[in-house]
Design a binder for these strands. Structure first.
Lengths: 185, 185, 185, 185
DNA sequence: CATGAATGAGAGTTCATTCAT
DNA sequence: CATGAATGAACTCTCATTCAT
């Protein structure tokens, strides 16, 4: 889905509004004001507000590097999230806040399927990693999944909620190494 | 803060509305309708909507059993969360959704200080556990914190988002044991 | 369907707005202004604009006197329309303007079933009248129906469009007598 | 007023929009979409929306055959309406719906003068017919006018509202013969 | 302790129209 | 001859809250 310059501008603005002030801050009026046009002008570029929200969600979808396999894929995925978020800090405030869109079923579906896509992918590579002996085999895959992704989500959330009070790259690396240490064998 | 019967009823209703339909579902009108009174009647029991939201947040505060120390405290805390949530499933849909209240600074502060209170407590006992040799010492405390709490939060969230599709007690136990396994020594 | 005083006031106002200025004049803002309250206040009394429109339509439904039969019923019906309209002249401007509500399917259905109810009733009594020899028998019932109702509708419409430029009771009586004259035998 | 091809296309499209969905369906956006151009493009061909509406109204004006006189003219006029409408069925849905344009005074005037022109013409020939003894003389001319035109209007309206559920030529002929029967002498 | 009625502010959206290109 | 982008005005409707009863 190709986007015009204005569409990108709107999505960017919307993301920022969402990050600073939550859902109740994400209004068409605020979007319009932020980019300096009238409200109806926004409708030239997005059919309605829902389309804008969906546009934001699409930004959450990390470009997963497919060339890796097994344990490599896992750590790459983790690192990728940290890089993605540190490159666009506002994301930290909303990327794991699925509840923000509760009640808007179309958006909920998007998020749900995105979550499942990622989970299935990670599961697959976790199994490969276990079979290759690159990761501990004495704990179930779903626990493994939660033990890896849970901390990453929490780290990102803390970074956002603290208004970027620490260096997420440093703490991200620290977390990654810690995970590698305890999940070895 | 003592609560009248009606106040409890309102908070309960509000929590359910929030869980099923998100923030945009938590309106004074819906609250009033759900408990079968008029809107002004709700104002007899709570000064305004913000007070209701704060009342909900207070419910999140887990009653922490203070008699334990070190590693015992940690695992108890984790188990406590699972018990709390399985006893009141709607909590699963909102308890870790701090973003829901973004923009309402008073509420944000409440959540922030609650999070910090828990974190400080866990930090303290994690240090004790490390000093006692009950938990691995080769990873930093904050990483340890994230590796324990992150997965718990994710588990609870998945349970809520899946509409309680699995037995959280079983998966909670599984997660606890996995954490104990990998964090030993 | 019992109506409160305010509801009657709103329906009355709405009817007048519709009559003077057509559909594009029938806005919630105009209704609110006309009765001297704010827009939201109107929503206390009607769930939405559609309910108001439906309320107006219900007013079109003539109270049909059931005690008559055959030819008596027919002429009574015709007279009833004239009386109804002369008692509430604004009706003349909208009562036969089914097209006003085109596109609002729920309202269209209401109008359609009301039209059919009246038509069926008149058909029944026209047949009785023919069997009794009170009306000419050499023309089909549906033509008879159109020859009686068509002129009544046109008369009412002309009265409304001319801004009540003539005495509808006089012209109504004239029309009635003319119909009786030509449809005799 | 000569019309370009594009202008005819626009008027045709507009007429269809008006017939299917009423006034609220007749928007510049819909017109533009229906003929596959942008909105500003429509303004190349008509100064504004009012001009388009006026263009539609002009289509209502029946080409009256002037060679007939008296009773011949009357029946010809009636037949002409049926032919006109059966040739362009969408007309049936709007041609007698003067209320559709209520509030747009310029358009109202057009309709009013068109109605009067036809009425005056028919009056003139009705008088001739009465003088020639071709039609009953014991009822006033305006009643006669309503008794002839009223049923025709109703027939056309019923045909449109029923979505052309019957053969209007058959029913039109039936109506015409019925009128001729009862108005004889 | 509760209600009916009301309100200002603001939500998302659509309208006819204009202007630079 | 056509478009993309924009706009002021207006639309229906919902929000949290207040006040007289």
């Amino acid at each position: 889905m190709e986007r015009t310059k204005r569409q990108d501008e709107i999505l960017d603005t919307a993301l920022h509004l969402l990050a600073n002030g939550g859902v109740k801050n994400l209004t068409m009026k605020h979007i319009a004001e932020s980019i300096g046009v009238s409200e109806p002008a926004v409708y030239r570029h997005f059919k309605n507000k829902a389309e804008i929200v969906k546009g934001i969600i699409e930004k959450f979808d990390q470009n997963i590097i497919l060339q890796n396999e097994g344990i490599e894929f896992i750590w790459n995925f983790v690192e990728g999230r940290i890089v993605q978020v540190s490159a666009a800090p506002v994301l930290a405030k909303v990327i794991f806040a699925e509840e923000l869109f509760a009640g808007e079923s179309e958006v909920e579906d998007m998020l749900f399927s995105m979550m499942h896509k990622h989970r299935d992918l990670l599961f697959k590579h976790l199994v490969i990693a276990q079979n290759n002996g690159d990761i501990c085999q004495n704990i179930p895959v779903d626990a493994l999944f939660r033990i890896i992704i849970g901390p990453v989500r929490l780290l990102v959330k803390q970074w956002g909620m603290s208004n970027y009070a620490f260096d997420i790259k440093v703490k991200g690396r620290e977390l990654l190494e810690s995970l590698q240490t305890i999940l070895k064998k």
